[in-house]
Write a protein that binds this DNA or RNA. Structure first.
Lengths: 230, 230
DNA sequence: CCGATTTCTTACAAATTTCTTACGAAGGGA
DNA sequence: TCCCTTCGTAAGAAATTTGTAAGAAATCGG
């Protein structure tokens, strides 16, 4: 999994440190700034994926900083504000931010919102360009609808089966070892001796192959792993 | 490319200015009004292609303004509302509007929706026009009047149910995870373990399906989420 | 052809995910 | 205020998926 870089700008060190702890716990890198100018500075030097800005800061405050950032970039911004401030006003002023939270905030909610913004940014954001539909000799996989067709006939795969097939078909031709498949699909370390992947491969074959004993699509490469024939 | 004229009506100058920046960046002209009457005035004098209206405004508010505009014109209207306001109310009242957004909003999302509406209105552009009425095998959803019909028979959905169904039917075929549905409809972060979406799905099925146990429209994709069959 | 290794196959129990129902709280309208 | 509708939660039921284990079959090097 990619490691995200998050920039936190707040004049109170306790808050910066607290947020740092929460986010590091979610496997993110945290950069800290005590005011807007410092934040802009870090933003230029580092490859930041998301910014948390406090509204009330000495010098450049959160709102001014947001405007500055928005002049050149579209990165997700999460605004923090004290509850005492007029929320209506805050609402108005935080335009330009992608989300906002009142202090004191619930750590769970903070991390949830951060993750949600990162998802949105990286999934729908400037990246993408991956094709929705992949086709290999009559085998069609649609990533948007998570459906699989064999010769126009829909095939119902389970979530795990689908993920294995998507991995293989997305890199068709390439051979994946059992260990590699397990770690990519389960996102957990693989321990030798597990038979799980083989069982799932069997089940996939049962569904997509005419004759599972002589697979046309999902082939084994002896002593190495599995692949989808190009 | 044609240059579009967009009218923004909001009593908060910061929001007007922010929106102006985003839209100018997309090569649009922006006219600004601080309340409904001023908006109607500008609308008469200028050749406006799209209107952004805040719900909460002194004098003529966004809803009253929409009704006034709709008496004579069919121009696209995008409604803005604070998240704190009751969504139930919002849904009911935004009848007449073509789209709506909660504040604080994501600038990317605002410009995307504005462009989408303009495309639809002017019938230009390579993208599909978003229809007011969406039909899937006897299930008809009208976005303008927020009504739903199953085989010509009207079905009364609640606000939340309607929004879930609209989300799914608008992207029919695509699978939405429970988390995705929750965040898109409630505009709040989702915490694991909540059963809310499932219950609403059940209620929707009870209303639109002949046999809720074997849904014809709103199907589950095990381990992934829900979708409306294409 | 043999033994060692790797993959396949099957069945079953455990785990996960979704469904269903009921109930109390909140809010709007009479 | 009372009634009605909608909403979210909880808890148990039902459905589906998943991993494990154990033996069979296939492949490879010699």
């Amino acid at each position: 999994m990619q490691k995200y870089n998050v920039l936190v700008a707040d004049d109170e060190p306790e808050i910066r440190d607290a947020i740092e702890i929460y986010l590091k716990n979610e496997n993110m890198n945290v950069f800290k700034a005590s005011h807007g100018l410092e934040a802009l500075d870090i933003l230029e030097k580092e490859d930041i994926h998301l910014i948390i800005l406090d509204v009330m800061m000495p010098g450049l405050d959160g709102i001014q900083t947001t405007f500055k950032i928005r002049e050149s970039r579209n990165i997700p911004i999460l605004m923090l504000s004290a509850k005492s401030e007029d929320t209506d006003k805050i609402l108005g002023l935080t335009v330009g931010a992608d989300d906002y939270l009142c202090k004191p905030f619930n750590p769970l909610e903070l991390t949830a919102r951060v993750k949600s913004q990162l998802r949105r940014y990286t999934h729908l954001g400037p990246y993408k360009a991956t094709e929705d539909e992949i086709e290999v000799r009559g085998l069609v996989l649609n990533k948007r609808s998570k459906t699989v067709f064999v010769d126009q006939e829909e095939v119902r795969l389970t979530a795990t089966e689908y993920r294995i097939l998507e991995l293989l078909i997305e890199h068709r031709g390439r051979v994946f070892s059992i260990e590699e498949i397990y770690e990519k699909v389960w996102k957990e370390p693989y321990f030798n001796g597990e038979n799980t992947v083989a069982v799932h491969v069997r089940r996939i074959r049962e569904k997509i192959e005419i004759n599972p004993r002589e697979p046309k699509y999902l082939k084994v490469v002896w002593g190495i792993g599995y692949k989808i024939e190009k």
